[in-house]
Design a protein around this nucleic acid. Structure first.
Lengths: 245, 245
DNA sequence: CGACGTGTTGATCTCTCTCAATTAGAGTGG
DNA sequence: CCACTCTAATTGAGAGAGATCAACACGTCG
C-alpha cells in the first residue's frame, strides 16, 4: 500500500498523456484516497453496486460488462492503463455495469465527490474528464457497430486491430514485439456477441490465413493490411493523445 | 430564426430538467449561436465531418449512427428533446458518427469552444455535461447488451420499453395516450442489428400477441409486464432527472 | 397514372449457435 | 513421480435464429 505520489505516476511519462500543471497535480493528489491492487479475475465493481468510488487504472487490464438475469454477459469495453472508471454510476441508483480485472491490476482510488471537486477547483481537469468520457463512448460506439453489423470474421479483425493499437501505444517499442493479450476466447466472445465455439473457429481461421498469431498471451499482427481491410475501420485508428486525470 | 431566449426555453418547464441559476442561464445564452430547424430525414452532422458545432435538441427526434464503407448502418442511439450532440467529435479528426433527424426538429447551436467556456465559467454546468455524456454512454451500453446478447424478440421489446419511457417522460400525460414513434422499421432494424424483414416479422409477432400496438406513428404498450419480462431490463427503467444544458 | 417509400408475408439459405468430445497445460495431493 | 482435477483451446456434427430473395399491398405525391 505504498501509494505513489501523483507526481511520480507511472502514467505521466507516456506520450499518450498530456502535461499537467502543478496545481492540477496537487489537486489530483489531494483527492486520491489510496491505491488498490487486485489479482487477475477479481471484481472491482459489482453490477448494481451503489456508492462505488472512482478509479483510474494504473496498471494491468480490466473490462466493463453487463449481464442479463440468465447469465448472458456482454463486455462493453476493455480498460487499459490510464482509463477512468466509474463516472457512469455517479448519481442515482448504482452501477449499471460491473468491472473485472483481466490481469493483476493496480487502481488509483478517488473519493466519490472527486468528480465534482475536480470540476469546481480545476475546470481544465473537469473538461478533460468530459472529453475522456466522450472518448470512451466512442469506443463503445465502434463496438456497437461491430456487433450490430459486422460478420464474425470482421468483428474479430476489428477487435484485434483496435486492441493492438491501444496496447501498442502504451509500450516503448510501439508494439514491434507484439503486445500482451490477456483475454481468453470467452472474453473475446463476450465482447463481440459471439459464442465461444464460433469465436474459436473464426480466430483459428484468421490465424491459419496468416493474419495474426496469438501465442503465450501475446498478440502479433502478421498482416495488418488484410486485417484492416476486413475490419473496415476508418482512419488509421491511432488513439489521440489523451488528457491524464 | 427567432431564437428563443434560454430563459423561455421550452425544455425548462419539463420535470426532467434541473433548475438553472441565473448565472448559468446567462452563460448558456451567451454561448448560443442560433437555432437551426431541419425537416424530417435531414442530415445534421455528416459522418466524418470536422468542425461540427455543438447542439442541443430542442424539439423533435433524431439519431446518431455509423456506417461501414459498403453501406451497412448501425444506429447508435436516438436523440430526444434535451439531448446533447457533438461532445464526441470535439478535438481531433472529426465526427465519428453522423446525425440525422427522424422528424422535423429544432436544434440549439453552440459555438465550438462553448464546451470549454462552460467548464471554465460555470463548473456546475461542466459537471452536468460530464454527467450527461456519461449517461448517454450508459444508453449505448444498454443497446450493446441488446445487440450482443438478446434475441430479436428481446431486442425489440427492450427498444419499445426504453423508447416509450423516454418519450413518455417528455409528455404531460406521461404516455397515457401512447407516445409518438417516428421510426420506420428500417430504423428499428438498424438500431438493433437486425434485417428489415426479420424486424417486421418480430414486430408483428409481438403485436399479434397483444404486447403493443403501433398505429399511425404512435406507440402504445398494451402489456408492459410481458414486455419488461422479455426485455429483462433492470430497475423500472425510469430515466433520472437530468441537468439541462 | 406511375413511381416511390413503407409495410407485409412466404420460401429458401447460411451463418452462427448448441451439443458433444478430445487435447493440453497447470495445480494439487498422495 | 503419478493420478486427479480444472481451465482453456480445439474440432466435428447437427440445429436454428435470422438473413436473403422475391412478391405484393397500400398510401402519397408529382
Amino acid at each position: 500500500m505504498t501509494a505513489t505520489p501523483c507526481q511520480d505516476c507511472p502514467l505521466r511519462p507516456l506520450p499518450l498523456f498530456m502535461a499537467q500543471s502543478d496545481d492540477e497535480l496537487a489537486l489530483v493528489q489531494s483527492l486520491k484516497r489510496r491505491e488498490q491492487t487486485l489479482e487477475a479475475g477479481a471484481t472491482l465493481i459489482h453490477e448494481g453496486q451503489v456508492d462505488a468510488p472512482l478509479f483510474t487504472l494504473l496498471e494491468g487490464w480490466a473490462f466493463r460488462f453487463k449481464t442479463l438475469s440468465d447469465g448472458r454477459r456482454q463486455i462493453l469495453n476493455f480498460l487499459l492503463a490510464g482509463d477512468f472508471v466509474g463516472v457512469q454510476q455517479k448519481m442515482g441508483d448504482g452501477a449499471a455495469h460491473g468491472v473485472i480485472t483481466l490481469t493483476d491490476a493496480v487502481f488509483c482510488v478517488f473519493q466519490r465527490d472527486a468528480l465534482w471537486t475536480m470540476h469546481r477547483e480545476q475546470p481544465s481537469m473537469g473538461f478533460n474528464v468530459t472529453w475522456l468520457t466522450a472518448h470512451e463512448e466512442s469506443v463503445v460506439d465502434e463496438t456497437l457497430l461491430s456487433v450490430g453489423r459486422r460478420s464474425a470474421e470482421e468483428r474479430i479483425a476489428t477487435l484485434l486491430v483496435l486492441l493492438y493499437k491501444r496496447a501498442a501505444a502504451l509500450q516503448a517499442d510501439h508494439g514491434a514485439g507484439g503486445v500482451p493479450f490477456p483475454l481468453t476466447q470467452q472474453h473475446v466472445a463476450d465482447a463481440l456477441g459471439l459464442s465461444l465455439v464460433h469465436t474459436n473457429k473464426t480466430l483459428r481461421k484468421l490465424e491459419r490465413r496468416g493474419l495474426h498469431t496469438l501465442v503465450d498471451g501475446r498478440l502479433h499482427l502478421r498482416d495488418v493490411k488484410a486485417l484492416v481491410r476486413l475490419a473496415d475501420v476508418y482512419g488509421d485508428g491511432k488513439p489521440m493523445p489523451r488528457p491524464l486525470v
